[in-house]
C-alpha cells in the first residue's frame, strides 16, 4: 500500500478511537451525537482513502454523498429524540450510560 494510504488509515483509526472513547466516557446526550458525527467523519475519510487507492474516485464520491445525506437525516431524527427527552425530563441532558432509565 502506498504511504499516503497508510497515513489516511492512521487518521481513520485515530478518528474512530476519538469517537469511541468519547462515546464511552460522556454523560451528555448531545455529546453522544457529536461522537457519532466524529465516527462518521472517520468513515468518510476511509472511503476517500479507498477511492484513492483503487483509483475509483468517482464511485467513492457517490458513496460519500449518499452517506452524508443519510447521516444528516439520522442526526435530525436523533436530535428530535433528544428534544423529546429534554421536554420530558426538564432541562437536563445527561444520562447514565449504559441504561437510561427514566
Amino acid at each position: 500500500m502506498s504511504l499516503l494510504f497508510a497515513l489516511f488509515l492512521i487518521g481513520v483509526i485515530l478518528l474512530f478511537a476519538i469517537g469511541i472513547y468519547s462515546l464511552l466516557v460522556t454523560t451528555n446526550l448531545i455529546r453522544v451525537l457529536v461522537s457519532i458525527e466524529v465516527l462518521t467523519k472517520g468513515v468518510t475519510l476511509m472511503l476517500i482513502a479507498v477511492g484513492y487507492a483503487t483509483g475509483q474516485m468517482a464511485q467513492a464520491e457517490a458513496y460519500v454523498i449518499t452517506i452524508i445525506v443519510i447521516e444528516v437525516i439520522l442526526l435530525a431524527i436523533a436530535t428530535g429524540i433528544v428534544l423529546g427527552l429534554y421536554r420530558e425530563s426538564g432541562d437536563i441532558l445527561t444520562h447514565d450510560i449504559p441504561t437510561p432509565k427514566e
Partner: peptide, 18 residues
C-alpha cells in the same frame, strides 16, 4: 482534504451539509 484528493463534489456536500 477531499477536494485535494480529487473529489470536489463530495467536498462541497460535506462543507454545506455537515
Amino acid at each position: 482534504i477531499m477536494f485535494l484528493m480529487g473529489a470536489p463534489l463530495a467536498a462541497v456536500f460535506e462543507l454545506s451539509v455537515c
